[in-house]
Write a protein that binds this DNA or RNA. Structure first.
Lengths: 221, 221
DNA sequence: TATACATTGATAGTAATACTTTTATATTTG
DNA sequence: CAAATATAAAAGTATTACTATCAATGTATA
């Protein structure tokens, strides 16, 4: 557990940030800064000041801030995938397995389970607020999509398979899986910024909403 | 019908773009340009060249391009709301009413129903690709949120009420409504850019997926 | 121990963006 | 026709998103 390293597509960085102190600082502090000031206001220059380093040094790790965001997102989904696989491994009952998976995928990241220099709570907030910006850009072409979003695809596929294991006749397992993943982030966003647009609050969690939604939708054997 | 004008929050513009030819040109061409090059690459300078006008003239209509995006989004949701209210008006059976509403909200905007200078097909694509960027920003503070997103809120509430009319005991009508609205845009995005992450394709529409999802979830009387 | 090599930091420079300001020229309206 | 208003053109500013160069430092190896 201590030495867990999340594998991230090599094309997302120039030099692996995990390979040096400076690199880890870049990752650690960029998460905190983007979380705090938002992706648009965040610049490599500001990050340089924060970590007592230089803009040009940061450019030796990441081509630009968009690639850095992709890196962070990939790391995040890799971390979620790891936790999901770990938690569902060994559960043979498909219903219980799916329940557990939904729980992991939609739960609030509360406790700081810092296994590394990454603050997962801040990263989770960052993903809720900024993840869409990583893929909603024209520059993402077909080749890069395959590599950059492979973890996310794997996650959707895993969930989709668990859905099908519960109800083989359900026709839209992939769409349901992607709706849960994206929808969960969205419900957390609404809860924080537009509370009238969601039933989620201190008492009702997105996990409850989505668990209920999925099991109402599926016909159990 | 011909003289239909979608009401947009006055704080979103400096001068009403509907009030002049230049204003209408700004709206018309900005939709086409953002659709084509993406919001990040789009600038008022480029728009000026396109419409044979000047950057500074555009700034007299919109404070900045983010406000323009908010304006376009508000116009879009106002247009959708109008169509939904129009289409569901007079339907007394709650199930049929909800069915119709989902259809309008999730259907592909195909035919160019140009009642104005607005190309709704391009605008729909723009919303699919860029809408999140209008609200996923730190600058949106509480006061402005209320005004800018009032139409979207009204839409979610209307849908939520129709859901409750079908099943009064369902506990998450608002979350389900917001999930459908956002999820529909997302499924269209996936269909276009990440087809393996959705079951929607030429044969299966997001409307079918969401209609099925909602009516499996709700217990009809 | 000397040298090579990689890493980082500091500085400067460029092109583009996101505006603001000023002034001149049309166009509309009273 | 005069006055007000809208638009266009040009120039200017601060910031961003980089790139390039060079010096300083540390580390690995012959």
């Amino acid at each position: 557990m201590q030495s867990l390293k999340i594998g991230v597509n090599e094309k997302l960085y120039i030099k692996d940030p995990e390979s040096s102190t400076l690199g880890k600082n870049i990752v650690e502090q960029s998460i905190l800064m983007i979380d705090e000031m938002g992706f648009e206001s965040f610049t490599f220059k500001k990050l340089g000041v924060q970590i007592n380093s230089n803009e040009s040094s940061i450019y030796r790790y990441f081509e630009n801030k968009h690639k850095l965001l992709l890196y962070l997102a990939t790391w995040y989904w890799g971390w979620v995938e790891y936790r999901m696989v770990f938690a569902t491994n060994g559960i043979s009952d498909p219903v219980k397995k799916l329940e557990k998976a939904i729980e992991i995928l939609t739960q609030n990241v509360e406790e700081d389970s810092s296994i590394t220099h990454v603050n997962e709570v801040a990263l989770n907030r960052l993903i809720i607020n900024e993840y869409s910006k990583s893929y909603l850009v024209k520059e993402i072409n077909k080749e890069s999509k395959d590599g950059y979003f492979i973890i996310c695809k794997r996650l959707v596929n895993r969930l989709s398979e668990m859905i099908s294991a519960v109800d083989q006749n359900y026709e839209y397992p992939v769409s349901l899986a992607s709706t849960v993943l994206e929808g969960s982030l969205h419900q957390y966003f609404l809860k924080a910024h537009f509370p009238t647009l969601t039933n989620c609050n201190e008492k009702v969690t997105p996990t409850e909403f989505f668990t209920d939604l999925i099991f109402r939708t599926l016909n159990k054997k």
